[in-house]
Design a protein around this nucleic acid. Structure first.
Lengths: 78, 78
DNA sequence: CGTGTAAGGAATTCTGACACG
DNA sequence: CGTGTAAGGAATTCTGACACG
């Protein structure tokens, strides 16, 4: 489940988020997809769950910098 | 694990097969990937395992039409 | 039969920017 | 701050065909 295998379009379909939101959450260091040789983002099922969780918190009024702490602990940025 | 989420390039990397082989095995009805709106194949982790199994059998001298029976039973073509 | 390859096209994804608030 | 969008380019995938054996 932690294997990075899906492209952003698949993640969009699975989470219901827009590509823009997914890229932004990555920019805010809330998720850490890998990259294909060509530069395309690759996400895992865990990332999908994490993104769903992030979005719910956002709807509850949290900001990205706050979530970076509360949801932290999954993976660092090795 | 049965969710169709990876594109053929990812499957290529995970199985070590060539895209040509993967497409051929689909043509021979040994795996049944879904399609994205644009026509791109989408595979599941189960498909990846299945493809590895297929390739091992092939190396043992089996032909695709023989494998369609022996490995059958996973999924039909609904 | 199973697989390689060149060919041309179409869909996918990427980044940086401007916008609004 | 979080997200939408138009812009241009690059990487990915698709199909049908010719090839060899």
């Amino acid at each position: 489940m932690s294997q990075k295998v899906m492209s952003i379009g698949t993640v969009r379909d699975l989470t219901g988020l827009t590509e823009r939101q997914i890229r932004y959450y990555e920019d805010r260091e809330l998720v850490f997809p890998e990259r294909s040789p060509g530069g395309a983002r690759k996400f895992s099922f865990e990332d999908v769950e994490r993104l769903k969780e992030i979005h719910m918190k956002m709807k509850d009024g949290f900001h990205t910098f706050e979530l970076r702490k509360s949801i932290a602990g999954h993976q660092s940025r090795t």
